[in-house]
Design a binder for these strands. Structure first.
Lengths: 249, 249
DNA sequence: CGTATGATTGAAGGGTCTCAAAATAGGTGG
DNA sequence: CCACCTATTTTGAGACCCTTCAATCATACG
């Protein structure tokens, strides 16, 4: 099923069989893109939204000097540009990082879906607010963490999200990015990303190589990142570690 | 009307008189808070959402070392914690910056409202995605701009948003924050905020003093901030200045 | 008028950037 | 299978922006 990873580990269970079938039927078409292709350009009116089925996609904004800032990374199961449904046009660009497969949902069909299945509509809304929650965490990450913490947090988040959709066992997962992509995601230079990666490797925390992340010490990783997965709104307490780390009780 | 600033300048005109009345009727109660009060604590289940009627409110997250990062600033007309409607609990804290007045919308009433008025429901969704768009811009701001640019961008955004709800003429607006609040919003230290403000003052770009912002050179401000208001999804082109600044055509 | 809070300024240190070069990996054609 | 070419990773040295730590100044308030 194309939509089988949608909200997986994120309260997908709140959707009935009936609703899941309706969602699957709303798929208008399936498209594949090569790596490093622009999928959506900011400002252009869009008439369908894409659910990522396979591969990695990013959203980004370009600065005047050509510097790029990633504002989101998407993994399979993510409704990449559902924001464009209420917004009609996007304020940022979307591109594939790897070869990707996406399921397209025409907006008129989504409108009908929401009216016919209010609970499903609520969950679609919910899924866009998960993006917003991740945005907020990225703001925190960029505003309050140093370079090591930022990279560590990025690894921690992506690892946890891949785990939720069944693409990571928690200690090893694919992350087919260049160091320059990490730099654009973390708000630091590529050169410094390289030094940070060496540091993380020498500390035996994580090893990033050849598009793969191997986590050696997840507690140290989470500590460096001040990572607490509750902002990802996971379905249940799948990681019974110590909570109340960042936020006051 | 308590809700008269909701989506003002942000496609409020897409709502019918009928829908606006229904929204106004959904107000359960009105609450006032003193300055610097915590309105919502992260993690606690919430059963109503607040529309800001008067005053300023912020959302923030605290780091381990006590450092705080603002993730959003809210002005009158903003539906402060509508995110909590689909999310049920928040991942961050909300506090008043000034004395504030908020209109409370019980979630059961919102549920009914959305079913009865699908278009209004869509606009409520839309309003939460405006927050997400601002979050993205903040990510860009923190990831790609230096201290001056960050502060300039903050002023530019807040000024534009206040203008949209009729609380600024574009060159002067209230912003009752401490320099430490600016620091927490911009991811820099209070000390450095002070130096940046002096710089902006000496350059005759903006003057921030006694909770008020006076913009002397809005073009210079926008240039420093790489500011382009399109991410705010304004209703119409109210500012016919040169577009296509940041993003490629 | 004394006290608390916020704003301002100075000096030194550190984290990250910039510029530059070298090493490695990946892909292609001979 | 090697030679070559390009993209990416890695390393070094110096500069710069911002932080840290302190102290002083201004302002509001009892």
């Amino acid at each position: 099923m194309l939509t089988s990873r949608f909200l997986m580990g994120r309260h997908r269970e709140d959707l009935s069989e009936h609703e899941l079938e309706a969602l699957e039927r709303a798929v208008g078409s399936v498209t594949t893109y090569a790596a490093r292709e622009e999928l959506v350009h900011h400002g252009t009116e869009i008439h369908h939204s894409m659910l990522l089925v396979e591969g990695f996609v990013c959203r980004y904004m370009d600065g005047l000097d050509g510097h790029r800032q990633l504002v989101a990374l998407h993994v399979p199961g993510d409704f990449v540009d559902l924001h464009g449904f209420p917004l009609k046009r996007l304020d940022h660009d979307i591109a594939s990082l790897t070869e990707v497969k996406v399921a397209n949902f025409p907006h008129p069909d989504l409108s009908r879906l929401i009216v016919q299945h209010p609970n499903l509509g609520r969950m679609l809304w919910f899924s866009t607010l998960l993006d917003a929650a991740m945005h907020r965490e990225w703001i925190f990450r960029l505003g309050r963490l140093g370079a090591i913490g930022r990279v560590a947090h990025f690894f921690a988040e992506v690892g946890r999200r891949l785990q939720m959709v069944g693409l990571s066992d928690g200690s090893l997962f694919p992350l087919p990015l260049h160091q320059s992509d990490l730099a654009e995601a973390c708000g630091i230079t590529t050169v410094h990303v390289n030094r940070v990666l060496r540091d993380l490797r020498e500390r035996k925390v994580v090893n990033f190589k050849a598009g793969e992340v191997v986590v050696h010490d997840i507690l140290a990783l989470h500590a460096l990142a001040e990572f607490d997965d509750r902002y990802l709104y996971p379905s249940a307490a799948t990681q019974p570690e110590a909570k109340e780390k960042r936020r006051h009780p």
